[in-house]
Amino acid sequence: MTAQLAFDLPAPASLRREDFFVSPANALALATLDAGGWPQGKMLLIGPEGAGKTHLAHVWAGSAGATIMAGGSLGQADIESRARTPVVVEDAADVAGDPRAETALFHLHNRLAERRLPLLLTAATPPRDWGLALPDLLSRMQGTSVTRIEAPDDALLSAVLVKLFADRQITVPPTLIPWLMLRMDRSLAAARSLVARLDAEALARGGPVSRQLAAEVLDSL
């Protein structure tokens, strides 16, 4: 059989609220964002890579009418115009080491506070670990309340695998998910990488995602 050309195009991930699987690993973070009324109108959502911070931030942004900005792009942003709605800053730690971006986040924080508009930030680590050079920004970030998404439990990891396959419109045998969980690295980043590899291999071979294919892919990792 001639192998098909496989293009590893990014699968569009669904970021709707109904597709956010609630588990003990993230239930407190979801409840905190839903409750609102955060101290000083700001909240920092911390969690490991691929834990669902982006999904949860988009859920909150949709309900709050918030603008979503990337930390690394703040240095080029028109802060005055962006600070007229609630704001989400994703990967806020990316401002560290960029004087323009650090200054922009400092001014964004202050403008939103003046206008009594909420600010949600996401990051993998607490502000003390970001390497911020601007003392006033570090002080404001360290004074921000924190909620966390914890490492994935079995229920969350299983749900994420199901969702990742569904996002790529891949149907798999029901027994494949628990089989994978016993053999894969137990992180959401590993789940995303594994599903992408399985998708690419299945496309290249022109066949389904099966246990045999999964075993071969896992052996190659």
Rank of each mutant, 00 (worst) to 15 (best):
Q4L: 12
P12L: 01
P12N: 04
L15G: 10
R16E: 06
R17N: 11
D19I: 15
S23F: 03
L28Y: 11
A31L: 07
L33G: 07
L33V: 08
A35Y: 07
G36S: 14
G37N: 07
P39Y: 08
M43V: 11
L44I: 05
I46N: 09
E49C: 13
G50T: 10
G52N: 05
L56K: 02
A57N: 01
V59M: 07
W60R: 07
G62D: 08
S63A: 12
A64R: 14
A64C: 08
G65N: 02
M69D: 06
S73Y: 06
Q76A: 12
A77N: 02
D78N: 13
I79E: 00
S81E: 12
S81K: 10
S81M: 13
T85C: 01
T85N: 01
P86A: 09
V89T: 08
V89D: 07
D91W: 00
A92M: 10
V95K: 03
A101I: 11
E102K: 13
L105F: 01
L112Q: 02
L112C: 05
L121T: 14
T122W: 03
A124Y: 14
P127A: 06
D129F: 02
D129E: 09
W130G: 09
W130P: 04
L134I: 05
L134F: 02
D136E: 06
L138A: 14
G143M: 07
S145L: 02
R148Q: 14
I149K: 02
V162F: 01
L164P: 07
A166H: 14
D167Y: 05
R168G: 04
Q169R: 09
Q169T: 09
I170L: 06
T171Q: 13
M181T: 11
R186T: 08
A189H: 07
R192C: 00
S193C: 05
A196S: 10
A200T: 15
A200E: 15
E201T: 13
S210F: 12
L213W: 03
A215L: 12
V217A: 06
L221E: 15
L221W: 14
